[in-house]
Design a protein around this nucleic acid. Structure first.
Lengths: 213, 213
DNA sequence: CGCTGGATTGAGTCCGGTCAAGCCTTGTGG
DNA sequence: CCACAAGGCTTGACCGGACTCAATCCAGCG
């Protein structure tokens, strides 16, 4: 578990994927099915195989904040002993779950430590970016940043957006109406083009990146 | 070093404090002096001895987001190879700095790994709370949450608030005017009482916690 | 087809931002 | 020790971006 330096990172990622496939149990979840709940004991690491997942927290009066979205190949891990978020499947999804005890049983494997460390580090960096977005960006900039994030992770030209407008709103600290208006606006400006509610293509990358600030 | 109460955690915290005192170089920084800059190589871990520190990020057009504040006993570590934030002293401050290479030289010390891991875990959790605050809380709730955080870390009855209104605003995603109005409001409601700009006492804890949501 | 629930669109409101004085501490120099 | 300057903080008036409420649209599905 070392701070800097990227050598061996790929190997670490492979190590955990391999370990998870060896020790993990594969589970299918239906749309909106709960994967774990807030306050549940956090004793597992999960790898998304297919589909997508959101993590959420609730405020006493029902206000909801989406913490993050997870796509295939990404690790869903909570670092404490109790879940601070709940997690639900955005759409039908398959996850590979490994109990922390199984991981500890292989303790001494530095590559594994390394992989979990790297996942946590990435999570922290993503969360820090999220703070900047929520703290200092306008509605339009938030939506643009969000679309960029999706498009970058998607890889393909036509980007799939499996979450609802409500999920996007709760992720960006906005309302569904505002999200909808901004998407319409971006489309009118020919920056992106939607086909259906859940798929879009980036038409003008430079414009989108400018709008994201 | 005030990490939680887990077994061995205290020991881990002590381990890093001890290591830092053994290998670290103590440096003094004046008010607003830069400790490290965004984009600088991140090759050190720092322990705050006295004073306080803020980390900040800038958007292209000058909008500023404060990532976090660090007080004595807290570790200031950036997990990647390059700083994603800059750090400045809030007031005159003393820090103990250890190069990552010195830490790697003692690799094999699991307690040390553990301490850095715990610090990162805490950082992630604090950042996640920050996201909830920025995404879903009102101005008043944000300020109340912030005061609670300060008061809890301070310990004493009379809480010191070493950062400026601008720092608070940039931390909470508000303007100095709004922060000021909320503080006035909380004081009018006898929830807190300020003496001077930089010190306050919590008068009604229950009310403050209610207001923080 | 018609139903249903999510998404869009519109009108009006309000919270927090902006702009502009004015105040208060703190610090400096006489 | 006081006077004064300067910068940070507060307060007020006004504005505007995002929220609220409500009507309508439309894609997906039975």
């Amino acid at each position: 578990m070392t701070l800097a330096c990227d050598t061996g990172l790929r190997a670490a990622a492979d190590a955990i994927a391999e370990l998870m496939h060896r020790h993990g149990a594969q589970t299918r979840y239906g749309k909106d099915e709960e994967i774990f709940a807030q306050e549940d004991p956090a004793d597992s690491v999960r790898l998304v195989i297919s589909g997508a997942v959101r993590t959420t927290r609730l405020l006493g009066d029902g206000r909801r904040q989406v913490g993050a979205f997870y796509f295939p190949g990404e690790l869903l891990l909570e670092t404490g002993s109790v879940h601070r978020f709940s997690a639900e499947a955005l759409c039908d999804a398959t996850l590979l779950t490994v109990r922390a005890s199984a991981i500890q049983a292989t303790a001494g494997d530095r590559q594994l430590d390394r992989a979990i460390w790297e996942a946590t580090r990435r999570e922290l960096e993503r969360t820090q970016d999220h703070v900047l977005t929520l703290g200092r960006k306008t509605a339009c900039e938030r939506v643009a940043s969000f679309l960029i994030g999706l498009a970058q992770r998607g890889g393909a030209d036509r980007v799939s957006m499996p979450m609802s407008r409500q999920d996007v709103a709760d992720y960006l600290g906005l309302t569904i109406e505002t999200v909808s208006r901004m998407l319409t606006q971006l489309q009118s400006a020919s920056v992106v083009e939607f086909d259906g509610y859940r798929n879009f293509t980036v038409k003008r990358w430079d414009a989108l990146e400018n709008l994201a600030a």
